[in-house]
């Protein structure tokens, strides 16, 4: 009983008739919060961000498609792809930020928190660096004193499904985990309850986590749910 109410945002989608504008939310996030003792609730419209920040205890900004398909198109961020989502993510982030309520960003959510706080993204870094992080798996090394060190230890095996990454860090954020090839894998805010994970902990749960040789991340969600109390 007394489960913290945690809002989970979605991405642009259609309902089954392909007629109605909808939000689509991957079930894995919802189940991860439900299993960790929270009450997951879902964004239902485009205009209730302030109301949500008033009645909910925490926010998860989820992952989604890559913002930008090619490095040379990075300036068109606001014109293509998920402009609706960017706009609403910003409203949600600002509302929960102003209310000083916990915010957890995963993948795109992690990247966009950095953008909202003044950092930049590195689009399609594989084209310049030759580093492939889409549908691969790799070790992640954690920094001392971080929550991710506390839960997963010095290093752990994780999934990887992204083409963009955090480039310059926003003021107030610090890096708490790295991939062996130098990609920023986790962030924490120095003073506010804000965290970001580049990998997908919501897919790393139960007896068959993704990747199977990785740890069960349910503990990480239990920890976040506790932060929302």
């Amino acid at each position: 009983m007394n489960r913290p109410v945690i809002l989970i945002n979605g991405g642009p989608a259609f309902d089954k008739t392909f007629e109605c504008d909808s939000w689509g939310i991957n079930k894995t996030y919802v189940q991860a919060i439900g299993a960790a003792g929270g009450a997951p609730v879902l964004c239902a419209d485009d205009y209730s961000a302030e109301d949500y920040a008033q009645v909910c205890d925490g926010l998860i900004l989820t992952g989604s498609f890559s913002y930008c398909p090619r490095p040379e198109l990075r300036d068109r961020l606001s014109q293509i792809g998920q402009s609706i989502r960017v706009e609403y993510d910003r409203k949600l982030f600002n509302a929960f930020f102003a209310a000083k309520k916990p915010i957890l960003g995963i993948c795109l959510g992690h990247q966009i928190i950095n953008v909202f706080l003044g950092g930049t993204l590195y689009s399609n870094f594989k084209m310049c660096d030759g580093i492939e992080h889409m549908l691969s798996a790799h070790k992640i090394k954690t920094e001392e004193g971080s929550v991710i060190r506390q839960i997963f230890g010095d290093d752990f095996y994780a999934n990887s499904r992204h083409n963009n990454a955090v480039e310059t860090l926003a003021p107030g954020l610090k890096v708490t985990a790295w991939s062996p090839d130098g990609v920023i894998e986790a962030l924490e805010h120095e003073t506010l309850p804000i965290w970001g994970f580049q990998f997908h902990p919501e897919r790393m749960r139960g007896d068959l986590p993704d990747p199977p040789m990785g740890p069960d991340s349910t503990e990480l969600f239990r920890w976040f749910v506790q932060q929302c109390r």
Partner: peptide
């Protein structure tokens, strides 16, 4: 559609 929840606005 995949493993998703849909919220029709």
């Amino acid at each position: 559609f995949g493993n998703v929840f849909i919220m029709n606005k």
